[in-house]
Design a protein around this nucleic acid. Structure first.
Length: 443
RNA sequence: GUGGUAGUAGCUCAGCUGGUUAGAGCGCCGGAUUGUGAUUCCGGAGGUCGGGGGUUCAAGUCCCCUUUACCACCCCA
């Protein structure tokens, strides 16, 4: 018989049970924390029309398209694609349902997204994004920006993630700097691309990149100095000397102090004028998040403010702020580094062993039923195997307790409960089994 | 999408310049031990050497294509 090789598809990750259980716990925790801040859940279809996906520009080659052979299938006539983020679907959703939504609209959305990029460690073609956004109609107070670092902080803490740093900036600042030269505002995209490489390539190369992008020669040293600055006061000095507007800097100051007032520890948030990634459609606040000591992983969560979320879909002005956690990337890296405890394979907490299945199967099943009715995750060992095998089964799955009973116990109205990790065993009255097990279980 | 490196048992790998039935450790299964998962001992299963084509008397080993992984670029979570 010729078998089909069980090969995975590149960039489409899958976990073994223990890791998937961890991922599920994290997803639940994120959901809970988002709701704690009053965000409401939505889900949009994985598939959108291509014209929607393309409306915000770029990314065309990264979209997985969808077609059916009957409809001309492959290359031409493709009208549908998988969403590559949750912001474009959000824009469509808000534009479409604006009459029925309450503004400011605080929503969260946790779904898989797809990007046709070359896969690498921590970089997938299918991955979870966990988005929160607040969308205003007509206006949205800058204080909303400050809420986001606080949400992020609470979420990362609740998930048990390692210490992290949020690097914040404001896109208006660089724009102001560029605008001090004629035609400078047109250089924004190129300048951002160059600045993006600063962390990796250093000042000398960045100088070259800026020149290649056509940034004014006299401005280049100012930008280089600026992106290396670490405090708001130094930044202000540079801007004033260059004659640039400082409105963006004022917003940044307000963001940082607001976030701290909302519970964000001050040491975890700091200005960083070299952050640029994902900046293209942001118009004000921007931030990226780095795991402390693992800055080389790049940003694991980024976000910011956009003046008009859905201008491609509606004439209504819909300003918003939001961020997205790239959960698949983050989990893959954290698990790979042993920075998150993975835990057991199975949710089962108690295994009811079947030492004498012939004689007592109904009693074993009845015990399991009582445990489940008490809300305790329980399995019965249903194969025929000697008792040692059954204990190994429990240990392998991380099941903490085993109920053991045959004639000796049942005749005395008792059952034995074995603690697999401690290798200890106690005999208790069958009537008090539930109470005993509840006292043994953590949490 | 572009380029570099790699692919031998479930896992980590050995296999020298091509040479009879491809190995080790760990893991897995069975037994010693039919009321107790450690250890020890004994036995066992598991490979079309990623796939396809080519060179050769002979290919895990050399060449080409392909696929997958890792790394860099592009870009980004």
């Amino acid at each position: 018989m010729s078998r089909v090789k069980p090969l995975p598809v590149s960039g489409f990750p899958e976990w073994l049970p223990a890791e998937r259980r961890l991922e599920q716990r994290i997803l639940d925790t994120i959901r809970h924390e988002y709701e704690l801040f009053g965000f409401t859940p939505i889900e949009t279809p994985s598939v959108e029309r291509m014209e929607i996906l393309m409306a915000k520009g770029g990314l065309g080659r990264q979209i997985y398209t969808l077609g059916r052979p009957e409809e001309g299938g492959g290359a031409e006539g493709v009208k549908l694609g998988l969403h590559f983020d949750l912001t474009v679907p959000l824009a469509r959703y808000v534009a479409q349902h604006q009459g029925k939504l309450n503004f400011p609209f605080r929503r969260y959305q946790i779904q898989k997204v797809w990007r046709g990029e070359r896969a690498q460690r921590g970089r997938f073609r299918e991955f979870y994004q966990c988005d929160v956004d607040i969308i205003g109609r007509g206006k949205l107070d800058p204080l909303y920006d400050a809420e986001l670092p606080a949400v992020l902080n609470a979420t990362f803490e609740a998930c048990g993630f390692p210490d992290f740093r949020i690097h914040v900036s404001n896109r208006k600042i660089l724009d102001a700097l560029l605008r001090t030269r004629p035609g400078g505002e047109d250089k924004a995209a190129g300048a951002l691309r160059a600045i993006d490489k600063y962390a990796r390539d250093g000042a000398a190369k960045t100088r070259g990149y800026l020149a290649e992008e056509g940034v004014d020669a006299e401005l280049i040293p100012v930008i280089l100095e600026f992106i290396q600055v670490e405090t708001l006061d130094e930044a202000r000095a540079i801007l004033e000397r260059a004659g640039a507007d400082t409105a963006g800097l004022d917003e940044l100051r307000a963001l940082i102090s607001g976030a701290i007032d909302l519970g964000m520890p001050a040491e975890r948030i700091r200005p960083d004028f070299a952050i640029a990634r994902g900046l293209d459609y942001y118009t004000g606040t921007v931030f990226e998040t780095f795991i402390a000591g693992k800055e080389d992983w790049g940003s694991v969560c980024s976000g910011g403010r956009y003046d008009d979320l859905a201008n491609q879909f509606t004439s209504q002005l819909l300003p918003g702020v939001g961020f997205s956690i790239g959960l698949s990337r983050l989990l893959d890296l954290l698990i790979g580094e042993g920075m998150l405890e993975v835990g057991a394979d199975s949710p089962t907490r108690v295994l009811v062993t079947t030492m004498d299945r012939e004689a007592y199967l109904p009693r074993y099943l009845a015990i399991a039923r009582r445990l489940r009715e008490a809300g305790i995750e329980t399995e019965v060992y249903l194969d025929t195997a000697k008792i040692g095998r059954q204990f190994a089964y429990a240990s392998d799955r991380g099941i903490g307790l085993a109920v053991v009973a045959a004639a000796a116990e049942f005749d005395a109205g008792t059952v034995a409960v074995k603690d697999l990790a401690a290798r200890t065993q106690e005999t208790v009255a069958e009537d008090s089994l539930i109470e005993y097990i509840q006292s043994k279980l953590p949490g």
